[in-house]
Amino acid sequence: MNGRRRKQTLGMALGALTLGVGLLGSAYAAGDGTTQSPAYQSSIKVPDQRNGERREAAKLATLAKIDATRATSAALAQVPGTLRRVALDNENGNLVYSVEIKTASNAIKDVKVDAGNGAVVHVDTPSDEEEAEE
């Protein structure tokens, strides 16, 4: 009987382990397993665009509630410096202006401005790879 009970216990433990691994796998599959980047949210959500960049750019322009001038003013109020470039971007479904500013200390800051309400939602320093792409 002792051997039979041990086999039953082992069988139940393996069954529970298999069930646990299956549940973890399905939970992982439900999400993509990554943290969304950027972590901020804008007031305008952009639907998934599969029509190419040119069509996407035209669509983004029609969704924006503020213009590049207002976005630039908001960015420069938050991060004083010299404007390098401004672009309307879809950042993981968030419609933002990406305003690149060179500060007095020669640091480059990428200021994200909500294209719906003009609020600064994020400020970061572009990586060397991003600067090289431009």
Rank of each mutant, 00 (worst) to 15 (best):
Y40N: 04
H122W: 11
G3W: 00
A16R: 01
K102H: 05
V113Y: 02
L19K: 09
P126E: 07
A58H: 10
V123R: 06
E130D: 11
G81S: 02
K7R: 13
D128Q: 14
T82I: 07
V111C: 02
T9S: 10
A77E: 13
T35K: 09
V96L: 05
A75P: 01
V121I: 09
E133P: 00
G118A: 10
L24K: 06
S98W: 01
A71T: 04
L14M: 14
T34Q: 12
V21Y: 11
L10I: 12
S37G: 06
D48W: 13
L24N: 15
S37C: 07
A58T: 11
T72H: 03
A119H: 12
T82S: 11
T82D: 09
T72E: 13
G25D: 04
R6V: 07
A64W: 05
K59S: 10
T103N: 02
D48S: 14
D114G: 06
V111G: 01
R84S: 07
Q78V: 05
P38I: 07
K65I: 06
Y97W: 12
K65F: 05
A30W: 12
N51S: 14
A87I: 00
Y28T: 05
N117L: 01
E130Q: 08
A64H: 07
E56T: 15
A115L: 00
N106W: 09
G81Q: 05
D32C: 08
T62G: 04
S43V: 14
R54P: 01
A39I: 13
L95P: 04
G11E: 12
A107K: 11
D32K: 08
A132Q: 09
Q49V: 08
N90T: 03
S37T: 15
A39T: 15
E53D: 12
E130I: 01
I101S: 04
T72G: 02
A64T: 06
E91F: 06
S98Y: 03
R5W: 06
V46N: 08
G81C: 01
L17P: 05
T62F: 04
E130F: 03
K112N: 13
S37Q: 14
D128L: 08
G118V: 01
A61D: 14
V21E: 08
H122T: 00
K7H: 07
K65P: 00
S73Q: 15
L14I: 15
T9L: 13
G3D: 07
G25Y: 06
V79F: 04
K112C: 09
H122A: 11
R4G: 03
N2M: 00
K112F: 14
V21Q: 10
L60E: 14
